[in-house]
Nucleic acid binder design. Structure first.
Length: 298
DNA sequence: GCGTCCAGGTCTACC
DNA sequence: GGTAGACCTGGACGC
């Protein structure tokens, strides 16, 4: 089944796909020709759609393959999920206006970058973010692949991301030994069980009316989420007030702005302060600019 | 092949 | 509020 979606003039699929590492973590998958994003959309219990997204001019082409025919509501859900993952409805005009005022950031609106790929659910984003903490990217990939293949649902050779119930039903020992989540295991377990018991509602964060500082504190209240993880989860919620600095970003900042000389995080924070509520996004685009140079000639 | 060391964020205990 | 040590794993390195 094929669906078509119009996109705004400032949207471009490829910079969005490669905006950060999520595209290489399942259930996301990027085709070898690097022009299509694949994802698995959970429609209902044991009913999934494999979705392939490409762009042709101002139209997204969404091809879906599912175990049973998609009804109207399912098709609408698939489209809404793709729109959300690709941040199509997010208004970045303020960000682009600010970028145009700075010579070193004019490349961003020029190649239509700045939208950060996110998962279909906040739960998936949060679990993946915890899996990025205190380890190499290779270990993050192992943990997420294990989560999908051992706790997700299989459809046509692909796995969905596990539900909170699927994780909550397992033991800490299973998460340690089979998922390789190590000391993160009790954090993932506690979070999943709180969601199942409806003691916390992560999905409400996307439409939260809380001031960003308060939402940051609420995110930080989840065990296993510190300043780095909370700052980056906020970016996936459309709020860019926090930098979410990790060792890789720190190193890139030193290379770009300090000739490799190290400074404190306070210096980094002061550097991006003039960019106001967009500072987290300017920080991220600044340290990842070279990615776009390789893949998308400016 | 084995043992050791290190990097990577967050939590907890302590000052 | 700031700091030290523990947590766990994969990878690099030396033997």
């Amino acid at each position: 089944m094929t669906m078509r979606v119009s996109v705004p003039t400032d949207f471009r699929l490829l910079p969005t796909i490669f905006s950060h590492g999520w595209c290489s973590l399942p259930p996301f998958h990027v085709e070898k020709n690097r022009e299509a994003l694949e994802l698995v959309v959970a429609l209902s219990s044991n009913h999934f759609a494999q979705v392939r997204v490409t762009q042709s001019y101002r139209t997204l082409i969404i091809n879906s393959n599912s175990s049973k025919k998609l009804g109207k509501a399912d098709r609408q859900y698939v489209v809404a999920t793709v729109r959300s993952c690709l941040r199509i409805d997010e208004d970045l005009s303020g960000f682009y206006d600010e970028a145009k005022r700075h010579a070193r950031f004019r490349w961003i609106p020029k190649i239509k970058a700045g939208r950060l790929l996110r998962a279909p659910t906040v739960f998936e984003d949060v679990v993946k973010m915890i899996c990025t903490t205190n380890c190499s990217w290779a270990l993050t990939e192992i943990m997420v692949e294990n989560l999908c293949s051992k706790l997700g649902n299989q459809f046509d050779g692909k796995y969905s991301f596990p539900t909170p119930d699927a994780i909550a039903d397992r033991s800490e020992k299973f998460l340690r030994k089979e998922i390789r989540a190590g000391y993160r295991s009790p954090y993932l377990l506690k979070l999943s069980r709180k969601i199942v018991k409806k003691e916390i509602d992560l999905e409400s964060w996307r439409n939260s009316s809380l001031p960003t500082a308060e939402l940051f504190s609420e995110i930080r209240s989840v065990k296993g989420i510190g300043p780095y993880a909370a700052g980056n989860i906020l970016k996936l919620l459309g709020r860019y007030d926090y930098l979410g600095i990790d060792s890789w970003c720190r190193k890139r900042f030193f290379e770009i702005h300090k000739n490799g000389r190290t400074t404190s995080d306070k210096v980094i924070e002061r550097f991006y302060e003039p960019f106001g509520t967009w500072r987290g996004l300017f920080f991220w685009m600044d340290v990842t600019k070279s990615w776009y140079g390789q893949k998308f000639p400016l």
